[in-house]
């Protein structure tokens, strides 16, 4: 097996002022060709796990390794953030500039591209996502779906090797959702996707984990199946009787 992109060993994390650890001696290895779906109830620690891997939160114990080297300091995690793009749940948190072009160019400029290169990169990324001509638009005037796509463009403009997506389909209409599925399929990059949207998970990922009692659970017996119609059990684990 090729060297993992990220590896966590014995990671513990407790939010200050709370007693219950959200992550409790958690181990996880994320390979360069994996497409991981992460599910579990609200508050089970899925977002916390992604934030620990990106260095937004520092574990109380345990180690994070990025491509084999330990990631401890802010400087180490800068390398992680260039290698891996994290799309936040709320696009309004992610889009910081008033205009689309400025926003998408933000990451490339931080990576040291010249203004001209960053502008080209931003425009190329926008057109890759079918957003050609969005450059001068005002970000607060975009619809919810457009905001999501623009925030994804901001992440992809940095050419990450892997993508982490935190509930990417929340509140999206079916069209935008299908566009995101198509984009992820085209990219072919390794993924970790947090979602309660099973149909989406089964379309873009192939391995499934949940977090329970601070531990990552991988159930190889548990196989997701695609639903072609509405289903009262659609968002819960269930077996179909043949």
């Amino acid at each position: 097996m090729s060297e993992p992109l990220l590896a966590l060993s014995g990671v513990c994390f407790t939010y200050p002022g709370t007693a219950r650890p959200v992550l409790d001696a958690l181990d996880f290895t994320f390979g360069p060709d994996e497409r991981v779906g992460l599910f579990g109830p609200n508050g089970s620690g899925k977002t916390t796990l992604l934030h620990v891997m990106m260095g937004l939160l520092r574990p109380d114990a345990g180690a994070v390794r990025f491509k084999g080297s330990p990631a401890v300091t802010e400087k180490d995690f800068r390398a992680v953030r260039r290698g891996i793009g994290l799309l936040l749940q709320n696009a309004d948190d992610q889009i910081i500039y008033p205009t689309v072009l400025d926003d998408v160019a933000f990451g490339p400029l931080n990576c040291g591209l010249s203004p001209r290169q960053a502008r080209d990169k931003a425009e190329a990324t926008l057109s890759l996502l079918g957003l050609s001509g969005f450059g001068p638009r005002l970000t607060h005037r975009l619809s919810g779906g457009e905001k999501k796509l623009v925030s994804l463009a901001g992440v992809l403009a940095m050419d990450p090797e892997a993508l982490f997506l935190d509930e990417p389909t929340n509140g999206l209409d079916p069209d935008t959702r299908e566009r995101i599925v198509a984009i992820l399929e085209n990219l072919g990059k390794p993924l970790i996707v947090i979602s309660h949207d099973w149909d989406f998970l089964v379309q873009v990922t192939g391995v499934y984990y949940s977090i329970e009692q601070g531990k990552l659970l991988h159930d190889p017996d548990f196989v997701l199946h695609r639903h072609v119609h509405g289903h009262p059990l659609g968002d819960r684990h269930h077996h179909h009787h043949d």
Binding site: R81, L88, G107, L109
Partner: peptide
């Protein structure tokens, strides 16, 4: 709360304290 999430989003996209702009 939002200001903290926005700052996190900026850090995730490589922000290291210095703004560069498209001229």
């Amino acid at each position: 709360d939002r200001s903290r999430r926005v700052y996190q989003a900026m850090v995730l996209r490589g922000f290291a304290g210095r703004f560069v702009s498209l001229d």
